[in-house]
Nucleic acid binder design. Structure first.
Lengths: 227, 227
DNA sequence: CGCCACCTCAAATGAGCGTTTGAATCGCAG
DNA sequence: CTGCGATTCAAACGCTCATTTGAGGTGGCG
């Protein structure tokens, strides 16, 4: 409960540091608990207990439990979208403005997959985002449904890479590809371990990334009877 | 509140009918509300109000809210698995014991997709199952993680159809294919409508089924550098 | 009819929830 | 040292929740 004060810090910034420390501890604890157990299952008391701060901290610093949830969601999706956009931008530069399907899919898949790595600091963030995507209500749901600016970049890039494919086919296949990522919850991996009797393990992130890109790329490149 | 008694029924079976009616009304209301808003957001009071029955009905007929949830989950997944197994069995018969990848994937995808049809009585059931898969805790989570007998039939069939592919590759690709279905939530369709500006609509179920099978089949049939 | 098992009902129970409150405490400026 | 704005704290508030209770009603059967 007094951990923040135990850290060796210059006294002249201790006040600001303590504020930042409390907020940061709440954010980290809430993200972890939400990712593991869902929003409604985790109480403000659970969060503040895990963070080692006072019960009132959440309402003081964030206004409400919902606002805290939205704040974490906002931060993490912004981070993820930024990294994805960066990789897409790099791929665009590498390929003279017209990246191939494989490079676009890699930009889409790699960030969340690499974050899911065993010892990555953003490991729980991916689970948090996936959970927020399916359980989120209110403001989160509104953002998810209406803010497609980030997805549009990828859709446009795919349309450019597949000029002969009808646009709606591209949108559908992008929808399928997104489903592949959103299914990477801990519980799904557990089921996969049981089903494959240990043969399929997600520990090798780059191999999994290749598998996913292979699978999705093949789906994008076909020219089926109904395209 | 007295709806059950208003229905014209032979008096000699009214008691049993009323019991069945109450249970059935609770089941239907709970399934619908759970599917639309999630488990934790829906209270027993919401359910009994929607069903037009007394508050205590849930605990009397099912024991607890959790047990009611699990009962619906058990029924719906059993129905879905039965239909999937039936289609797989039919495909197996049609192809002399060795159905091709396309037929296997159709057996996997068609039931939930057809249930999602606009006027299908099981429309909310699919949303319920998807939600239970990601939000479910306790007994549901245990079943999801450990009961893979239903999936194993499909995995074995796919292994038989793809004898040159390493087993773990089949498991991973099945995992990807399952992700494609589980992403078919109402909210995801909404987002797709916005992104595609109305071009991609899920109303034509058979066309969507073809798109999904095309996409997944291509992913299964490749022989990539890391298989 | 009278009994019985079954079901329904309104009311209550007690626990847990998000949030609020007002006093206490902090580092710091005057 | 004193006063001040920002933060932390223990306590409490009001509400909703799942569940329980015990009385009342029901139809079927001897």
């Amino acid at each position: 409960m007094t951990e923040a004060r135990l850290s060796p810090q210059p006294p002249e910034c201790e006040n600001a540091e303590r504020e930042a420390a409390t907020k940061a501890q709440v954010l980290a604890a809430a993200e972890r608990l939400f990712a593991l157990h869902g929003f409604r299952s985790v109480s403000v008391r659970d969060i503040t207990a895990e963070a080692g701060v006072n019960l009132a901290s959440v309402n003081y610093h964030f206004g409400s439990k919902d606002a805290l949830l939205f704040e974490i969601f906002r931060r993490r999706t912004a981070e993820l979208n930024r990294e994805r956009a960066r990789m897409l931008h790099e791929a665009t530069g590498r390929h003279g403005g017209k990246p191939p399907v494989r490079a676009i899919l890699t930009a889409l898949f790699a960030p969340p997959l690499r974050w899911s790595n065993q010892d990555h600091p953003r490991r729980v963030s991916v689970q948090f985002i996936i959970r927020a995507r399916s359980e989120g209500a209110g403001a989160i749901r509104d953002v998810l449904r209406t803010d497609v600016s980030h997805l549009r970049r990828f859709a446009d890039a795919l349309i450019g890479a597949l000029p002969d494919l009808p646009r709606e086919a591209v949108y559908w296949r992008l929808h399928f590809a997104l489903g592949m990522i959103h299914n990477n919850r801990f519980a799904e991996f557990d089921r996969l371990h049981v089903l494959s009797e240990g043969a399929a393990r997600e520990s090798d992130t780059e191999a999994l990334l290749n598998r996913m890109v292979d699978f999705a790329e093949a789906g994008f490149l076909i020219r089926g009877h109904n395209t």
